[in-house]
């Protein structure tokens, strides 16, 4: 702001307007964080359920002296859901990253057809996740296209019941996730790849570096922050995995594809023990808050780098 405009009157006007402009967002944030958090904390130390006939504010009558938290520590279904969520993440995120990076490398310079290919490759991430779940539900039916393609390759009829086998169902939901979110990695990594200074690459070429050396010693280090951001976004979103998975398998067969979100959903809507759900949710929130601070630091550092 130029000095002519830095008068106290204008500054005050600015401060007042700034306060009024940010107020609605502040109210919404408070409305969805502070009060619900206290409510959650309160309910989590009780046995309260919407079927108990008590208003939630009277939940203290059902005080259970932190039993929810000790139950949680011993809840095998919770821990195996958490383990499954981590397995899905550990498989999907690196797969999406590597495929996205490979595709981005192919798109780094211009070639005929680039823009149409680019638009098509981005389509999966824009498909409504629930609809994507339904697409893959159809694809993996035992009389569906996946088995049809496999039959053509194997030369005999293949009738694998993908979604009723515990292991195969988990693989199927991971394939759906990779299909939908590799484009996001591709999009972000390509944006980063194009920002790598070409003169350094040329210099390295003149010095005799081969493509692989140029890639590992110039391109990758330059893209470090972007890679961290892309991975952070996918880790966060993948941890929430619900829509596609729930439509495809409902968490089944049995609990074979039950991730954290599916598990909480089932306890919320079927078992209806909301006091316990509140305890699970709070435990997750605490862990994720720690992750949030870390992620925020990465983001802040990245924003200082002109992309």
């Amino acid at each position: 702001m130029s000095t002519a405009l830095a008068t106290p009157a204008l500054r005050d006007e600015g401060a007042r307007l700034g306060f009024r402009l940010t107020l609605p967002a502040q109210i919404l944030v408070l409305f969805i964080s502070a009060f619900p958090l206290l409510m959650q904390l309160y309910i989590s130390v009780t046995d309260w359920s919407p079927l108990s006939g008590l208003g939630w504010w009277n939940a203290w009558e059902m005080w259970n002296s932190f039993a929810n938290y000790t139950d949680l520590a011993a809840d095998g279904r919770f821990w195996s859901a958490l383990k499954r969520t981590v397995i899905v993440m550990v498989v999907c995120v690196p797969a999406e990253f590597l495929l996205g990076l490979a595709l981005a490398t192919l798109f780094a310079d211009d070639f005929p057809g680039k823009r149409i290919f680019y638009s098509i490759l981005l389509m999966p991430m824009m498909v409504v996740p629930a609809v994507a779940g339904y697409m893959f539900f159809m694809l993996f039916q035992s009389g569906g296209p996946v088995n049809d393609i496999l039959s053509a390759i194997m030369g005999g009829p293949v009738t694998i019941a993908w979604l009723s086998d515990p292991t195969l169902a988990l693989i199927a939901v991971m394939i759906a996730d990779i299909w939908q979110w590799t484009p996001l990695m591709f999009l972000i990594l390509l944006a980063g790849l194009v920002g790598v200074p070409q003169d350094q690459i040329k210099a390295a070429t003149l010095l005799g570096a081969n493509p692989w050396q140029r890639f590992t010693s110039i391109v990758l280090p330059k893209m470090k922050t972007i890679i961290i951001i892309a991975l952070a976004i996918r880790v966060i979103e993948n941890f929430k995995i619900f829509d596609t998975l729930y439509i495809m398998t409902g968490g089944g067969p049995g609990v074979a594809t039950e991730t954290i979100s599916v598990y909480i959903y089932k306890v919320t809507t079927q078992d209806l023990i909301w006091g316990y759900v509140a305890a699970i949710a709070l435990a997750i929130l605490v862990v994720l808050s720690i992750v949030a601070v870390f992620a925020m630091k990465c983001m802040a550092r990245a924003r200082q780098v002109p992309a």
């Binding site: 967002a25 944030v29 969805i32 964080s33 009060f35 619900p36 958090l37 409510m39 959650q40 309910i43 966060i236 941890f239 929430k240 619900f242 954290i260 979100s261 909480i264 959903y265 919320t268 909301w274 759900v277 509140a278 699970i280 949710a281 997750i284 929130l285 994720l288 808050s289 992750v291 949030a292 992620a295 925020m296 983001m299």
Partner: peptide, 16 residues
């Protein structure tokens, strides 16, 4: 505050 809002799984804040 807003990034934290995005970070949490909706499932973990839906009871309140």
């Amino acid at each position: 505050a807003l990034i934290q809002l995005r970070l949490f799984p909706p499932m973990a804040v839906m009871i309140p």
